[in-house]
């Protein structure tokens, strides 16, 4: 397509402005984590690793990080199992209400977190009598983490069809062997992509977490929120935020590469 110089310049400006709105503040967060001025004076009078050190030594941060990792891993594990099973059921079998089931599986990712949060909290607390804690956080996160795994696996199954498994059966492999040697390897990168996205979703979730965590369970985002307005914690909060930016970029980047590329080579 041919664009005039002006049009080209205008489009580039729009692109830079649009991306700038998102990424400049993030850059400021990362820069401020090295800002030697404790009130984030701008431009920074100097740079220091002091806040990173303080964050590293803070037990509050470490406990919160560990809780978040546990919650993320738990929710991802549940999502991998349930999401894969659901995708197989919907893609490989015909049953009454299949489309409805598919919609109901995907819906939680679009539901407002506050609604999911209140609903789960009520059900756990009042109906089931389950004490709120890490377990309820994991279940809460799993409700929407399932969606990313489900979508990835479903797309993969749709794209590869049944022929590879039929070929395997024709060559003498039983159902289990076929799953082990053909179906699972074919889904591996989709599972990894779905799992990474699920983990990233869980890791920075705050709304559902607030309602399902109860007292004493503090994930990293919750810790940030609690310490946000304590002036002497501000530099450490900023470091944690900067770290979170970096930690979230990696899984998303990997997931995109895995689901975009051809899955044949390791």
């Amino acid at each position: 397509m041919n664009l005039s110089r002006t049009a080209r310049a205008a489009l580039w400006t729009a692109l830079v402005l649009g991306l700038g709105v998102v990424y400049v503040p993030l850059g400021v967060v990362v820069l401020n984590s090295f800002n030697s001025d404790r009130t984030f004076g701008w431009p920074p009078p100097g740079f220091t690793l002091q806040w990173w050190g303080a964050a590293w030594r803070s037990t509050g941060v470490r406990d919160a990080l560990w809780t978040s990792v546990q919650a993320g891993l738990g929710a991802t594990a549940i999502a991998l199992v349930l999401g894969t099973m659901a995708a197989f059921a919907v893609q490989r079998y015909r049953f009454f209400g299949r489309d409805t089931v598919s919609l109901l599986i995907v819906l939680p990712i679009a539901l407002p977190g506050i609604v999911t949060g209140i609903a789960l909290s009520n059900t756990f607390h009042s109906v089931l009598g389950v004490p709120l804690g890490l377990f309820t956080v994991i279940v809460g996160h799993a409700t929407f983490c399932v969606v990313t795994v489900y979508n990835n696996v479903l797309a993969r199954l749709r794209r590869t069809g049944l022929n590879m498994e039929e070929a395997s059966a024709d060559l003498g492999a039983d159902t289990f062997t076929t799953f082990r040697l053909v179906t699972f390897p074919m889904m591996r990168s989709a599972l990894l992509a779905g799992g990474l996205l699920a983990f990233a979703l869980s890791f920075d979730e705050i709304i559902v977490t607030t309602f399902t965590a109860g007292a004493g369970v503090r994930t990293l985002p919750i810790w940030i929120f609690e310490n946000l307005f304590r002036p002497n914690q501000a530099p450490v909060v900023n470091v944690v935020a900067a770290a979170l930016v970096i930690v979230s970029v990696v899984p998303i980047y990997l997931a995109q590469r895995l689901s975009g590329g051809d899955p044949q080579t390791r």
Partner: peptide, 20 residues
Amino acid sequence: LSPQRRNVGFVFQHYAAFKH
């Protein structure tokens, strides 16, 4: 008989190659 036990070789239009 299941496909596994028929001892037939099947070649698919789109090859069904095991990509991995």
